[in-house]
């Protein structure tokens, strides 16, 4: 039986998170949703996902701190895609310097996110 690709999504906007959950689950991914950075770190530690999607601006811990924690503390080389809004270009650069793999500027097309996830996870064996 195939193992689905697991994703941790850290997004504090519940409607947007639900939309992405619905979309990505339809695509066959297994999704764990965190409403803030702190929850995201817990989920990443517990589930060791194949890819992490994180918004930059979140309560408690930001996406930058999540990225830093994953790379520095957990020493995981899991792909990390950060979501940024307009005007957060500096933060995106900082995210890249902390080890983010890719970024998507909000608003974005969920279909494009699926393509990026496929690109990042293409080498992961799913069984």
């Amino acid at each position: 039986m195939n193992r689905p690709i697991t994703i941790v999504l850290a997004e504090d906007n519940p409607v947007f998170a639900s939309l992405l959950k619905f979309k990505l689950e339809k695509e066959g991914y297994e999704l764990y949703i965190a409403a803030n950075g702190q929850m995201a770190i817990e989920l990443i530690r517990n589930y060791e996902p194949d890819i992490v999607l994180t918004d930059i601006m979140m309560p408690f811990l930001s996406g930058l701190e999540v990225t830093s924690y994953v790379r520095q503390t957990l020493k995981m080389d899991v792909p990390i895609i950060v979501f940024s809004a307009a005007g957060q270009e500096k933060m995106v650069l900082e995210a890249f310097s902390l080890g983010a793999t890719d970024f998507m500027g909000k608003p974005f097309n969920p279909n494009e996110l699926v393509i990026r996830i496929k690109k990042e996870t293409i080498a992961i064996p799913v069984f």
Binding site: L19, P107, F108, N109, N111
Partner: peptide
């Protein structure tokens, strides 16, 4: 909320 975050045909 959705309108602010998405683009493309879904928008």
């Amino acid at each position: 909320d959705l309108h602010r975050n998405i683009t493309g045909d879904l928008l």
